[in-house]
Design a protein around this nucleic acid. Structure first.
Lengths: 188, 188
DNA sequence: GTCTATAACTCGATAGAC
DNA sequence: GTCTATCGAGTTATAGAC
């Protein structure tokens, strides 16, 4: 297997493990078992676990940017925002939480560079929602009056929280509640 | 030191560590250093780490029930809800996240009994908010029309998420945004 | 209750052969 | 690129003295 393919395979498994179990609850031994190569070979691709975590987040952020670019091609602000929320729903039904939400929980055990990428992901999300919301208001699709900035920050927090809570309660309904309240507040 | 005092002291330190670093990122050695006794003595009070985690959550839930009972003595629904949100703000400024939010992130590494207590905590919170909101509407303090159940589930998710996100971004403003939007939606 | 000592294991990481 | 082998440190947990 080529270097990039193998690295990609490792990142794929590692991401899933972080999203399901947490960054401090999986090991190179787990990755070795999942990929079918030995621990030492994982170190060849990712020298340290901290480095693996950083590349995981950078890759995840690239994925976000790609997804948002895709969503931007949709015709209305509401369909774009529905698509955004749907991505969280997909994460939820797969039994995972957001990679950044998971790593933010362990933030104090990570280095500054890694924490910075998490912050950037959250800001990117929030700013995209705010921009999309403002466009919707501008186009007359949404009712004006509410703060688009507060709405964006609230939505991102609520979606992140809903994923974490639903895994503990087994109740997936809070994500729907978040979505309903979000759109309700911009109804004319 | 008596048995109960020592156990209480250990729980106090352990809770802080879980809220700041995560359940899988602190050890009996850390607790030994914090309390000034040896690792083996910690095991005398809490046989296993899983047992410590369970007792941590049960104690935290008792704290919630006590706090909600206190809040129920306040004169209006809005002051009660402000008090509820303020508790999250205090957690935030102390650099921590909710104990249940932290452990919910590691939920897949915990046993069923422990997960159950987390779920109970979330349900208790959400039901109290819903009840308080409904009372406010009934008393004419809040405008009717919105689903109190959706609002409660959204608020709890958003507060939990805001704590996690703010630690990664360094921006404490999302909690204020959540609060403003929550009360805004019930304004006449 | 708290101690010392240690078992049994897992962790991230490295050296060096192929 | 992947392997075997191993290091040193950390982990939870227990036995038994005081």
């Amino acid at each position: 297997m080529t270097r990039v393919d193998r690295a990609e395979q490792i990142l794929e498994h590692a991401q899933r493990m972080v999203q399901v179990r947490g960054f401090n609850a999986f090991s190179y031994a787990d990755l070795a078992e999942a990929t079918g190569i030995r621990k030492a070979s994982i170190h060849y691709h990712f020298k340290t676990k901290a480095q693996l975590g950083l590349e995981l987040l950078e890759r995840y952020t690239r994925g976000l940017i790609g997804a948002l670019t895709q969503l931007d091609t949709l015709p209305s602000a509401s369909t774009r925002l529905e698509g955004f929320i749907d991505a969280y729903r997909q994460t939820q039904v797969s039994g995972a939480i957001c990679l950044c939400g998971s790593m933010a929980s362990d933030a104090e055990t990570l280095d500054d560079a890694t924490r910075e990428v998490i912050g950037r992901y959250v800001r990117l999300s929030s700013e995209w929602v705010e921009k999309t919301l403002a466009k919707g208001v501008e186009d007359g699709e949404f009712a004006p009056g509410r703060s688009t900035q507060d709405a964006a920050a609230s939505l991102v927090s609520a979606l992140q929280g809903a994923l974490v809570m639903s895994r503990a309660t087994g109740d997936f309904g809070s994500l729907d509640a978040v979505e309903r309240r979000f759109f309700e507040s911009f109804r004319g």
